[in-house]
Design a protein around this nucleic acid. Structure first.
Lengths: 228, 228
DNA sequence: GATAGGTCAATTGGATACAATTTACTTGCC
DNA sequence: GGCAAGTAAATTGTATCCAATTGACCTATC
């Protein structure tokens, strides 16, 4: 059964993945013509994809200037993490209440695949870590929640790519396992606490120090001096 | 200072408002050129607006068939309410923690404007009730959270328009006041409990009985008999 | 009379063409 | 040499055009 998908969808997903895996770095320009030629499609398609990506917070567009890969500020990053925590705590609650029968198998299988790339800090590791959370959200059966979780997780991936010095995936994978156990035990309190700690750790690691000097972060440091 | 806004934005907002206020009823078709002629713009613009509305869950598009005003199922409605509760509980928590100085004034002013249309069940009343929640979310200073709350509130408005027999705005306005008081008291527990009850009541009212027989609700009732 | 097949109208999917706006560079003046 | 204005290039904003797909209606056959 070949799912019929539109070109817009394809370009959308490709760009998204490229951004998450840092092939397209934050702040980089995304001219419609260039991207279109690259994929062999017209500006129209690229445009639609860029609109979607903007809605997802992965790119920003400036009027008559074009689209750029988003450079989330530390404040914005904090906001994303706040929203994410709220959403994922709800996911935990729902999973304790109604985890589907094959849910644990899927989660454990995913953790195993995460462990298989253990040690390698990189795009793949970041992507897999995010997909674990997305999988959890999907297992709630709540498509709305799943979509929002998916969005914030992707934005967090971008944030981590910008700010985190190392993803420290070993720690994360272990925490993922612990969360599964807590859910299986029906212990909402412990599971949410673990998730809270998990996300807090991720957020904390990110806020320590900017990984690379982005244009905007530089300007924000020097801005005050120029505002005479 | 005249904010320069794009045509897409304008059409987007107009359509959104028309849907929320039930000028465009659930299930209604939205042909691109018809809408375009109506607003005096080209299909391109309408198309972009429809893409956004689809992302917001207010319209659904079927491949090569066109866009329709969404007809959320009861299950989908439940999902939206679940997500909404999670988000709004977080809003409460954040407001107790860091309500901006002018926040209470703005909230109370809004409640007064809600009271001014008291008794009139209708589009305006529904819209105002929703905007109260959106205002609260904006007061957290978290734009991400505010955007998500905004989306689920709008979808809930659509859901209420479809399913609720009466909006019972008096009750809601009173509950809004109580929530403000609880937040001012710094009582997270009571405030979240009130919000939970408030949303639960709204959801419960919606789930009682479909207001009008939508095409899909009819089909869902007869679907089992045809699946011989 | 019902059903299968075919043709046709309607509508979207996508590409191209034109207009408007912004940026960057050049040139002239102080 | 620096600054300002004007001009040109590049890129987006918008409109129009062609192709592909879908649904409906009509017809012929069993």
């Amino acid at each position: 059964m070949t799912e019929k998908t539109t070109l817009t969808d394809a370009v959308h997903q490709l760009l998204r993945r490229a951004i998450i895996e840092q092939a397209l770095k934050p702040g980089m320009r995304l001219p419609e013509d260039t991207v279109g030629e690259q994929f062999g499609v017209s500006r129209t398609i690229v445009r639609h994809a860029l609109v979607r990506l903007e809605n997802e917070g992965l790119v920003v567009t400036r009027r008559n200037r074009g689209a750029f890969v988003a450079e989330p500020s530390l404040e914005e990053a904090k906001h994303v993490f706040e929203a994410r925590r709220a959403l994922e705590v709800e996911v935990i609650r729902l999973l304790v209440e109604r985890m589907p029968s094959s849910g644990y198998d899927q989660l454990e299988a995913h953790v195993r695949s995460e462990q298989s790339v253990k040690g390698k800090d990189g795009p793949v590791s970041i992507r897999l870590a995010g997909e674990f959370h997305i999988l959890m959200a999907e297992l709630t059966g709540n498509a709305v929640l799943a979509r929002y979780v998916s969005e914030v997780v992707l934005r967090c991936s971008l944030i981590m790519a910008m700010y985190a010095k190392s993803h420290s995936s070993e720690c994360a994978v272990d925490e993922h396992s612990q969360i599964i156990v807590a859910i299986r035990d029906g212990d909402v309190r412990r599971a949410t606490s673990l998730m809270d700690h998990h996300l807090g750790a991720v957020a904390g690691r990110a806020e320590l120090e900017p990984k690379q000097d982005s244009v905007s972060s530089i300007l924000s440091r020097y801005g005050k001096e120029l505002a005479s």
